[in-house]
């Protein structure tokens, strides 16, 4: 079966493992490091990262990017997408990559609009 078909390199070939088990432990260490960084940042909240970028804190952008990195390694190495055929890979990943940002984009823009209306409107919401 697919046992021999594992691709054992991660980080674009920077890190090569001898066996699949080793790769699993390697990815675990990587995911743990990323999670630790996230938690540390969440507790310290460095002042430099509190600035705003595209209407959101830089810190929040970092959290989202680190989350996507984690999601990538869980899907690619734990769920073995790395070993699947390209067609199958795309059938799974493309709908998500297209639909999720689209939905997030339209709803968040709309929510921001509603926020402005409630803030600048004539009706008081704070009573």
């Amino acid at each position: 079966m697919a046992a021999e078909g594992h691709k054992l390199a991660i980080f674009r070939g920077l890190l090569k493992f001898k066996s699949n088990q080793q790769k699993i432990w390697g990815v675990l260490i990587f995911l743990s490091i990323v999670t630790t960084i996230e938690v540390a940042l969440g507790i310290i909240k460095p002042e430099i990262l509190m600035g705003s970028f595209l209407r959101m804190k830089i810190l929040n952008w970092i959290f989202i990017i680190l989350t996507l990195v984690k999601a990538y390694y869980i899907a690619w190495d734990f769920m073995h997408i790395r070993d699947e055929k390209n067609g199958f890979k795309n059938a799974i990943v493309l709908p998500l990559i297209i639909l999720i940002p689209y939905l997030a984009f339209i709803l968040l823009i709309e929510a921001d609009y509603i926020f402005e209306v409630m803030k600048d409107g004539f009706v008081s919401w704070n009573f």
């Binding site: 997030a104 709803l107 968040l108 709309e110 929510a111 509603i114 926020f115 409630m118």
Partner: peptide, 9 residues
């Protein structure tokens, strides 16, 4: 995303 909607609102 609906959570995000309520939060941005």
């Amino acid at each position: 995303v609906s959570y995000g909607f309520s939060r941005f609102k």
